[in-house]
């Protein structure tokens, strides 16, 4: 029991991710029967990217729900899903990505697999990180709203052509356990499998490629990072700008300069890495300390470099 508790404390984030994934995907019979949960909880959105066609899913994916409403005949604005995104974003920001998203958990686990060479970022990262905003506006909003069939209904373009979470957590389990669905396989499933396999392989090589470059939900939550209830701040009195926080950050964010970068998933590695305890959250009750110059003078230390 003591060992288990120690492990939970040491790997708190992984445990939270596992528990939350299990909690929001708790309909285990769905995996056995090849069916999905049809209870009332499906009217509610879960915070992370969690396909509602996953056999275990008890709630709805916010990105899938947004497209479902925008693509419907009667609604061209979604108060309900936008309200939900605002609510989650205002409280957590991208904390959701780091702690509550099942596809984020999968990428975290894949990155733990040893590989010949791990990359800090993909070539073209500077521009690639904006791709998720293009996907959000194009595939999640504009295309479902504007490309309509003869009855005035659109399609969920992101889910259909990109979402690897849907392929992995919904497509593969349903197709494996439902012969009727298996008989309908075609080029679209092949395409989505290619996207999924490419992303899974990239996840071994580079930390969270889907979250960094493609995820429209991360793009939305990232915008809330600077104002959310849960945000980071730098205690200027303690920060020496040594850059250890950036070194520890697997997303390569200069935390000491941009503690609320839209790319930050709040994993907390920077907080652990800072030897001065200068990175803290808006909810912590630490008091600002004396300016670092005074303290370094007292100790006779050299003032570390600025970036």
């Amino acid at each position: 029991m003591g060992k288990l508790w120690l492990s939970v404390r040491r790997h708190l984030r992984t445990w939270v991710q596992l528990c939350f994934t299990a909690l929001t995907n708790g309909y285990l019979m769905g995996f056995v029967k090849g069916k999905i949960w049809k209870g009332q909880t499906k009217a509610l959105c879960v915070p992370g990217l969690n396909c509602y066609s996953c056999p275990g899913a008890l709630g709805s994916c916010p990105i899938g729900s947004l497209q479902a409403v925008l693509a419907s005949r009667d609604h061209k604005v979604s108060f309900y899903v936008v309200g939900f995104l605002l609510l989650t974003g205002a409280v957590f920001g991208r904390f959701v990505c780091g702690w509550l998203c099942p596809f984020g958990l999968l990428q975290d686990l894949l990155y733990k697999i040893p590989f010949v060479k791990k990359l800090r970022r993909l070539p073209g990262d500077r521009w690639l990180k904006y791709l998720k905003y293009v996907i959000l506006t194009g595939f999640v909003i504009i295309l479902p709203l504007t490309v309509l069939d003869i009855v005035g209904q659109g399609q969920p373009w992101f889910c259909k052509y990109i979402c690897p979470s849907g392929t992995l957590f919904a497509g593969i389990p349903l197709i494996a356990s439902n012969p009727l669905l298996r008989s309908a396989l075609g080029w679209l499933f092949a395409w989505k499998t290619v996207v999924l396999v490419a992303l899974l392989f990239l996840s071994v090589l580079v930390y969270r490629p889907f979250c960094r470059y493609l995820c429209p939900l991360g793009a939305v939550y990232g915008l809330f990072n600077p104002i959310a209830f849960y945000r980071f701040k730098i205690d200027e009195g303690k920060c020496t700008k040594c850059g250890l926080c950036q070194k520890a950050c697997k997303l390569d964010i200069p935390v000491y300069r941009k503690p609320n970068s839209p790319e930050c998933i709040r994993c907390g590695d920077c907080k652990k890495a800072c030897p001065h305890g200068a990175v803290c959250s808006s909810l912590s009750k630490k008091r600002p300390s004396a300016p670092v110059d005074d303290r370094t003078k007292e100790k006779g230390e050299e003032t570390p470099h600025a970036d």
Binding site: I36, W37, K38, Q40, K42, A43, C45, C51, Y52, S53, A57, G59, S60, G64, S65, A68, V69, S72, D74, H75, Y80, V81, Q155, P156, C159, K160, C163, G166, T167, A170, G171, L174, I175, L181, A184, L185, G186, L188, F189, W191, K192, T193
Partner: peptide
Amino acid sequence: IVFRKAVNICMECIGLG
């Protein structure tokens, strides 16, 4: 609308249509 979409298997999401 969200409920109706979520309680039926989404063919687009699973790559079938």
